[in-house]
Amino acid sequence: MRVRDQGELVAAIPAMLGFHPRESLVLMATGGQSGRRLGLTLRVDLPPPEIAAYAEHAEVVAASAVRGLLLDDPAGAVAAVLAPSTGDPPSLPHRRLAGLVAQALAEREVDVHALLWAESTTGGARWACYEPCGCWGLVPDPAATEFVVATVAEGRVVHPDRDALERLVAPADPGALRRREELLLRSDAGGAPGDTGAAALDTAIADAAAGRLTLSDTRVVALASALGIPAVQAAALQRSTGPRAVAAEQLWAALARETPDPEAAVPAALLAVSALLRGDGALANVALGRAERAWPGHLLAGVLRTAAEAGLRPDEVREWLREGLTMEPAPAPRATRRGRRSA
């Protein structure tokens, strides 16, 4: 699929990130044989323009973003500032930041294909070039662009904003979580046998694939206990790369919401694996944040955080799985859960 102009580049950003960013600097790496194949796409918050130390903040933001983009060893790059502006023609905001990004990329011999401003990534939003060409236009309807249509058809979900990603893993009803916590406290510490746990996992994935997944207290507790078994964890990682990977990802997200802490760290980490296998760094970071809050120091979450920050490609993550990447071998101590509940 080809992106034909600057407006289509802006429209493509949500499809690359997985959500519509706001008040953001977005960098898109290009490479491949042509040097123009879209690769790593990253986003950072813009420095508040009203602060006295804006210049210093802009330097930090530009340096951090370019350093992250270089992990993809790009031949070129596209930079876009997404922020509201006024006037007709608009007064382009964050010129200093845009200049710093262009300078940092040039110093590293990375061609800047486009240096853009857009007020948003939605259809009809205005965009313009910071460069002397003075190009400007309107962002096309993403649903009418070949690139975005093809990306969504492949199963990519584009959320309205980053908060929507957070809601995918946000803890569910506190009352339900308390009930399940009590059930986990009373359950057998050893959990179900590995083959029984794997079977329960497969049944839940099949239900997710058929659109009939329901998570009662009993089922959540059974799945959480099963995922505390190393053999079931290994099976879960395999399901994240198999023919039902999409359904498995749906199950991990649901369990990340419906499982009490600290057990929620396991499905949240599995969700991060699924996201990294699709190249969805935004969802991976949100899922890892959920895992780290649920279980500080969780082994797999820590390993995956390193992978996410290193910008590993999906094929490299798959290689990790083939080499036997494993999770924390034992469930969280019951004393830890009791301590958190009484705190």
Rank of each mutant, 00 (worst) to 15 (best):
R334T: 13
V112A: 01
P230T: 10
A210S: 15
L177I: 06
A189F: 08
A143M: 05
M1R: 06
A268W: 07
R313K: 15
G281Q: 02
D161Y: 05
G137V: 13
A253Q: 14
V157Q: 09
R239W: 09
A75D: 08
A192L: 15
A248M: 15
D141N: 15
F19N: 06
G302T: 03
T241G: 14
L116D: 01
R126Y: 09
P193Y: 14
V169R: 02
Q33C: 07
V152H: 06
A226V: 03
V286I: 10
P329G: 13
A208Q: 02
P314F: 14
R340C: 05
A308W: 08
W117L: 01
S34A: 12
R293I: 09
R4D: 14
R167E: 13
R4F: 15
T30Y: 09
A253I: 12
R96W: 05
L69Q: 00
A79M: 01
T336H: 07
T306L: 14
S225F: 01
D195H: 10
G197I: 08
V317G: 08
V317A: 05
P21M: 08
L288N: 03
E249I: 02
V44W: 07
P21E: 10
L116K: 04
L92H: 01
R126P: 06
I205N: 01
A106C: 02
L185D: 08
T218S: 14
P132V: 04
S85C: 10
V273K: 05
L201A: 03
A55F: 15
E59W: 02
I205K: 00
V303I: 08
P90Q: 15
